[in-house]
Amino acid sequence: MTGERTAGEAAPGEPPKPPERRDPQEQHRLDERLKSFEGRTAVADGEGRDPVNEPMIRHWCEAMGDTSPAYPEIAPPTMLQAWTMGGLAGHPVGSTRTSAYDELFGLLDDAGCTSIVATDCEQEYLRPLRPGDRVRFDAVIESVSPRKNTALGSGYFITTRMDIRVGTDLAGTHRFRVLKYAPTRRSPRPEPSPTGAAKAARPRPVVNRDNEGFWEGVAAHRLLLQRCTGCDTLRFPWLPGCGRCGSPEWETAEASGRGTVFSHVVMHHPPFPAFEPPYAVGLVELVEGVRMVSGITGVPYDKVRIGMPVELEFLRVEDAKGSMELPVFRATAEEAV
């Protein structure tokens, strides 16, 4: 046929993969046999299952969001193929597809090409279809490509051309190309689903020589700060030296656990597997004067307010990686909603 393209182009996305190992002679014989179907009739005088009708036009327009007032007085021209479809029940056996068409598809199924996907559709509309029109159609197998490797899998592009008539009028032509292929196994598409999020483990604290004292405190349900012994300045997070005077000498000081929300954000995006958005993250100013980033509990994410009093609590987390405890801050009773 004219207009035949490099069929591999139609593969969604990627460059062609190297061909799979097959017996070249056997492959050649199959390709030749498939090629012999070109020019054969695929459908002989098929009949539309329903006449062109307003309900199907309306359903189509609803699905497409097409509000054009031109319909349903005429059918949307792009419905052309819909009038030829067999639907769930299919066309009555033997009424539409020829044995050539079934034989071609049978050969491809036997060759492992059991899946099908449409790649091209070219339609010309010569006469509008109106409710009451009864369509009849004929189709010919225009071309069968050699075996191609595509992103979906290896297979054959089959092009058919259909003429759709109403009485003796040619209403439209419909050229359709499908890829009949052997699917490549692939890993499931990753998607950030809320159910998956609940199962993912939370990230663990990174405990090192500089901050291990803090985490030992948490384990004992004590919130420990550092106090510089050179200048008495409290600091958090834990660091090896004083940010004010530079002294490496320090001692621990236990925080009371009371504070206020100094600032906060609500996380919506990007989703992180262990957390289900939206959720609030607060910057809490302790009464001792230092600030900590932590979760705010006991209040909906959208009720967290700057200046809201909060109190330390320890959150026990049990998940796929085991259990741990984390210091978080609960909105105190009088503020909780």
């Binding site: 497409m64 021209p77 996907v117």
Partner: peptide, 20 residues
């Protein structure tokens, strides 16, 4: 629909050729 939305209800589609 995209094309007829733009050109109005009295425009008539003559040909649509697409590749997926």
């Amino acid at each position: 629909r995209y094309v007829t939305d733009h050109f109005g209800p009295r425009a008539r589609l003559r040909k649509v050729a697409i590749r997926l």
